[in-house]
Amino acid sequence: MAAKHVHGAARIGAAVAAAPAAAVLATLALVAVLPAARDVRYLLAYLVVLPAMVLAACLALLARSGARAWVGSAVVAAVSSAILVLT
């Protein structure tokens, strides 16, 4: 039986490069849509961004394949960018 090919490098690449950037974009999109004062929104962004980056990196590492990790990060980044553009 042939050994299954594991895409560990692709998942690690997504966790290091794409997932933290997508998490920052998601945090900025959250700040853009919150109905609060500007200083409260930015305080919340500072408090949320680091755990969001860690969560995104962990989820990228737990993905079944490297392609899923990259696509997941790309989807989050695209939706966040669309929210930022539309607000």
Rank of each mutant, 00 (worst) to 15 (best):
A74F: 05
A67G: 10
L50A: 14
V79D: 13
S73M: 09
Y42R: 11
P51D: 04
A19C: 11
L34N: 05
A19K: 05
G72T: 06
A10H: 02
L84V: 04
A18Q: 04
P51A: 02
T87H: 08
V6T: 10
A3V: 06
R38F: 03
A23V: 06
A56F: 08
A21Q: 13
A23G: 07
P20Y: 01
L47Y: 06
A14K: 08
A22I: 09
L34A: 15
A36Y: 08
A29T: 01
L44F: 15
A14C: 12
A10K: 04
A56M: 14
L59R: 10
V76D: 00
A56T: 14
D39P: 06
L30E: 10
M1R: 12
R64H: 10
H7C: 03
A22S: 14
M53K: 02
S80K: 04
P51W: 04
V71C: 05
V79N: 14
A52N: 07
L50D: 03
L43R: 13
L50I: 10
A10E: 15
A9V: 06
L47I: 03
A60I: 01
L34C: 02
A82M: 09
Y42G: 00
A36S: 12
A52Q: 08
R11K: 15
A45C: 05
P35H: 05
Y46G: 13
L43E: 13
A15F: 09
A15S: 11
G72I: 05
A74L: 15
L50W: 15
A3L: 12
L59D: 07
A74I: 10
V6W: 11
V75S: 06
A56C: 11
I12D: 08
V85Q: 12
A26Y: 00
A45F: 00
G13F: 11
V31Y: 05
A17C: 08
S73I: 04
A56K: 14
A69G: 12
Y46M: 11
A67Y: 07
R41D: 02
A2N: 06
A23P: 09
R11D: 14
M1C: 02
A9S: 14
M1E: 10
P35N: 09
P51G: 00
V48I: 10
A37L: 12
A52P: 06
V40F: 11
G66Y: 02
K4V: 10
V40E: 12
A67S: 15
I12N: 07
L44T: 14
I83D: 13
S81P: 03
V76P: 00
V85K: 05
L86F: 15
V54Q: 03
D39F: 06
L59W: 01
L30K: 09
A18F: 02
I12P: 01
P35L: 08
K4A: 15
A29E: 09
V48P: 00
A32F: 04
P35G: 05
A82E: 08
L59S: 04
V31W: 06
G66K: 03
Y42A: 01
S80A: 15
A10I: 00
I83G: 11
I12T: 05
K4D: 13
V75Y: 09
A15P: 09
S73T: 04
A56N: 11
G13W: 09
